[in-house]
Computed example of a mutant assay.
Amino acid sequence: MLVKYRNSQNKMALGLLSLMLKEREVQQLQQMMQRYEQNPHMEMYFWKEEEKYIGIIGIEVKQKEFIIRHVAVLPTYRGEGIGRAMVNEIQNSYSNLTMTATEETEPFVQSLY
């Protein structure tokens, strides 16, 4: 189930986002988190199962599209369809917009279809 990110969950979000290979430097991660917290067009959601946060997805909502900026799943849960489930729920929530991806997330998004 998707759960919207709250500022009090910053450390948990940093931990999950650090799983993305190109975002490992703490300073870069903190700057990215600030963008999510300060930009009203950027949203982040956790994937929660049985009281445990095991995935995260970050999007940017524009006028006619939403961009998948970040997707990460705990290594022990990879291959179980959690990334696909997160993308599907986001698509359902923003069904009136076109889904796009960044250079980093494009390979994963393309692998779903």
Rank of each mutant, 00 (worst) to 15 (best):
R69S: 10
S18C: 03
L97M: 03
R6W: 04
V109C: 07
M86W: 05
I68M: 12
F66G: 04
H41N: 13
R24I: 13
F108V: 00
K64D: 15
G81S: 02
M33A: 02
M1T: 00
G58M: 02
E51P: 08
I90Q: 01
M44L: 09
Y45I: 00
K62D: 13
G83K: 04
N39K: 05
L2D: 01
L17F: 01
R24M: 04
V109S: 04
I90C: 02
M32L: 14
N96L: 10
E89G: 07
L19G: 10
E60T: 13
Y113C: 12
E104H: 11
K52W: 00
I56A: 09
E51D: 12
L16I: 01
A101Y: 10
W47M: 06
T100H: 09
E51I: 00
Y77W: 07
F46Q: 01
N88L: 14
S18G: 10
V109Q: 05
Q34E: 15
N10K: 13
L29N: 04
E43N: 06
G15L: 05
A85M: 09
V3Q: 07
Q110F: 11
E104K: 10
I67S: 13
K4I: 03
P75C: 05
E80D: 12
N7P: 14
Y45T: 00
A72M: 05
E51L: 03
E49S: 10
S18K: 08
K11E: 11
P40T: 07
V3G: 04
M1Q: 10
N7V: 15
G79C: 02
